[in-house]
Write a protein that binds this DNA or RNA. Structure first.
Lengths: 237, 237
DNA sequence: GTCAATTAATGACTGATCGTCAATAATTGA
DNA sequence: TCAATTATTGACGATCAGTCATTAATTGAC
């Protein structure tokens, strides 16, 4: 009975190790560089044992993505509690998104892979659901802030628009920006020298376009974001 | 000498066929479904002959992407000639982007694959350059319109902002939106029922945020976009 | 302590698929 | 007509995912 607990602990530790090795390979040489034999070799276990933990390669990738996503939900949740007006809290979410990318720079590689190769179909229902839940939770946190803005009267939406449509704008801009900046080598040659800052500005402009008070010319949201990020970095250490 | 021309013609035809088969497979079963043996079988040629045309699988994928991208440059170029104020012409570009996705729905799959798997490194310098050139041309067309807006005085940018920063906003939002909508199965469950329309709205809002006259409450850019798209569809037939 | 039953670990093997290349076939032009 | 050139072929080597019969380790009843 006691040994049972030890075994379970060892199993979890090994799972961590597998994911750590997998992440390293993935970062270093992409999807095709992730090699089950090599994981086994580095783990000093046989391949069969690796397959005891993960049904296939894709499950490993999705497990990595899920770990990162759970962290993001957590960071979004904490950012949403920022004390201030709804639009400031929205800026805090933006800061959380930035911190997240800095803290887990591998995450975009992994999530892009999940969203692109025929990985999705090969994974278990269970893991897929975790990912969808994380995604949905992030969306809900953000649309909650939009709703707070609506009820405070600082934001009005056109009648044919839902809060989720606005959130989709932020989501797509952020996702698109980070995708492009991690995969395009010619950004600066094309005159985009600081894409992360440009992303911030463009988000502010979009929210200004919606007329969400206070507008960015009135309140310096970049300074809010830097404060929030500083908070995240402090608690990290 | 005469037969030389015929041979060259046949070679190009075969290349077209290879790409057509490849595209079909790619659409049907993703990157992993693209199979060189199967292409050879369907072509009724041996594998070696296929490899005479393309050094590897990745070259085929990049060739597909480039074909689509060249079309997009063409569509952007034509959209940019739309007669109207700069902001209307920008809306025309948005319409071209929409038409492009409708006309070449496979393109996003392909470009995503290029941007994600370790495909980039395996391809020839030449084909990579074509892709970068297309990208750069699209950006230049769009930033040209931004500059027209600046010189007409209908748009002012904050002093720390370049036209390219604004373009990056449109680019990232558009790329992000289409990526998400083609890869997320739970959008409507999360309250985003018409992502393409939401994308339009969000782009208008961002440009409104920049204060680009005439604002979208004054001029109905969706109607401009529908006109432009109608034009594209007409000439297609 | 013994031993049968259960659980865990192994790695050789199958199958899929990429890319190569020596051998063969077809074409050309003198 | 035939040697030289060009095109085509498909068997082959290499890599890698995932399987499974075999072997090793652990457990718990007696």
């Amino acid at each position: 009975m006691v040994t049972q607990a030890r075994k379970e602990r060892e199993r979890l530790e090994r799972e961590d190790q597998i994911l750590a090795h997998a992440l390293e390979m993935l970062q270093q040489s992409g999807y095709l560089g992730l090699n089950m034999d090599r994981i086994a070799a580095r783990m000093e276990y046989s391949k069969g044992t690796i397959y005891q933990h993960f049904r296939n390669k894709e499950e490993i990738i999705l497990a990595l993505a899920n770990r990162a996503l759970e962290k993001r939900v957590d960071m979004f949740r904490r950012a949403a509690t920022w004390s201030g007006r709804p639009r400031e809290r929205m800026a805090a979410i933006g800061a959380a998104a930035e911190s997240f990318v800095e803290k887990y720079p591998h995450h975009f590689t992994v999530e892009q892979i999940v969203r692109c190769a025929s990985i999705w179909e090969k994974t278990s229902e269970e893991r897929r659901r975790i990912m969808e839940t994380c995604e949905s939770q992030c969306l809900q946190i953000v649309s909650g802030i939009v709703r707070d803005g609506l009820s405070s009267g600082e934001l009005q939406l056109p009648e044919d628009r839902s809060p989720e449509d606005l959130v989709f704008g932020l989501w797509s801009m952020s996702w698109g920006a980070y995708t492009i900046l991690t995969t395009s080598e010619t950004l600066s040659e094309n005159g985009i020298t600081d894409p992360v800052l440009a992303l911030r500005h463009n988000m502010h402009e979009m929210l200004d376009g919606y007329g969400w008070e206070p507008l960015s010319e009135v309140l310096d949201y970049n300074s809010v974001m830097d404060q929030v990020k500083a908070g995240f970095e402090r608690e990290q250490s």
